[in-house]
Simulated assay, not measured.
Amino acid sequence: MNPAKIRELLEQVQSGSTTVEDALGTLKDLPFADLGYAVVDHHRALRLGVPEVILGEAKTAAQIVGIAGELVRTGQNVLVTRLDAAKAEEVCAAVPAFRYHAMARVATFEQTPIPQLGTRAVAVVSAGTSDLPVAEECGETLRMLGAKVERIYDVGVAGIHRLLHRRQVLDAMGVIIVVAGMEGALASVVGGLVESPVIAVPTSVGYGAALGGIAALLGMLTSCASGITVVNIDNGFGAAFAAARILRAGART
């Protein structure tokens, strides 16, 4: 249940086209629905402006389908993250309207228009092609959150001229998300070039002492570029959600 649906329901009660009893029936599932294995938070869209998102990684296909069905039943769009191909095949067979994005490892179900967040886009900047799964998770999440997305891929510091070539595009962005593994230096470079908020996503890409993304994480946390925000390793979803919060706050001012 989102703010637009609640407003529509209240206006129907006010006009007399819906009875108070019928409205109470519609609202009976707020604030949540207990499925036994999951308690679906129907109130989240009212609090945050975004419905509950399903983390698919440790859930069974049946659990994902059950939670998604509850969100769909109440008129909400659905985003499932960290969904591998085998599990996605089962989910999409059960709910054919799901669309699976293999690179991003996300599935989406869209049944209502997604309100757009402001006029400025969010840039998703990746250091290398190996970072694309995290970058695409970020991009697809941003799309479901209503943000315009500008993808700038494979512009890492090993060939810094590739990034500088896109300088004017970066300057026009509302928020910039930098996705990088190895030593994570790209976030510092971008943070030193632009005025917009920069969110850094360390990835688990890299050899030996990269330590599964810890080297990039520590490098981003200790960046000499002031004011960079850093999320957890491979957390493209978290970076996208943070960017959407920034855009939403800016739209209210």
Rank of each mutant, 00 (worst) to 15 (best):
N2D: 14
K5W: 07
I6Y: 11
V13Y: 07
Q14F: 13
Q14D: 09
D22S: 10
L24C: 08
G25D: 09
T26F: 12
T26K: 15
L27H: 10
K28T: 00
F32H: 10
D34L: 12
G36M: 10
Y37C: 01
Y37H: 05
D41K: 07
H42A: 11
H43V: 15
R44W: 10
R44N: 10
L46D: 02
P51Y: 14
E52P: 09
E52D: 04
E52A: 11
V53F: 08
I54M: 08
L55H: 12
K59G: 00
T60N: 06
G66K: 11
A68Y: 14
G69V: 15
E70I: 05
L71H: 06
V72G: 03
R73I: 11
Q76W: 12
N77F: 07
R82A: 06
L83G: 04
D84G: 00
D84Q: 03
A86N: 04
A88F: 01
E90Q: 15
C92F: 07
A93Q: 14
A94M: 12
V95P: 03
A102T: 09
M103P: 07
A104R: 05
R105G: 03
R105C: 02
V106Q: 03
A107V: 08
A107F: 14
E110K: 14
E110H: 06
Q111A: 15
P113T: 06
P113V: 05
G118H: 08
V122K: 10
V125G: 04
G128A: 14
T129A: 14
S130C: 01
D131F: 01
L132C: 04
E136K: 13
E140L: 03
L142N: 06
M144A: 05
L145H: 07
V149R: 09
V149S: 05
V149A: 04
E150K: 15
R151K: 15
D154K: 14
V155G: 05
G156C: 08
V157K: 10
H165I: 13
Q168W: 09
L170D: 07
D171T: 01
A172Y: 04
G174V: 01
V175P: 00
I177V: 03
I177N: 01
V178G: 02
V179H: 00
G181R: 03
S188P: 02
S188F: 07
V189D: 04
G191V: 12
G191S: 04
G192E: 10
V194N: 00
I199Q: 00
A200W: 02
V201H: 01
T203R: 01
T203K: 00
Y207N: 12
G212R: 05
I214Q: 10
A215G: 05
A216D: 05
A216C: 03
L217W: 12
M220A: 12
L221A: 09
T222H: 15
C224Y: 06
I228E: 03
I228R: 09
T229N: 06
I233H: 02
D234L: 07
F237V: 09
G238V: 07
F241E: 09
F241T: 07
A242Y: 05
A243S: 03
A244M: 13
A249F: 09
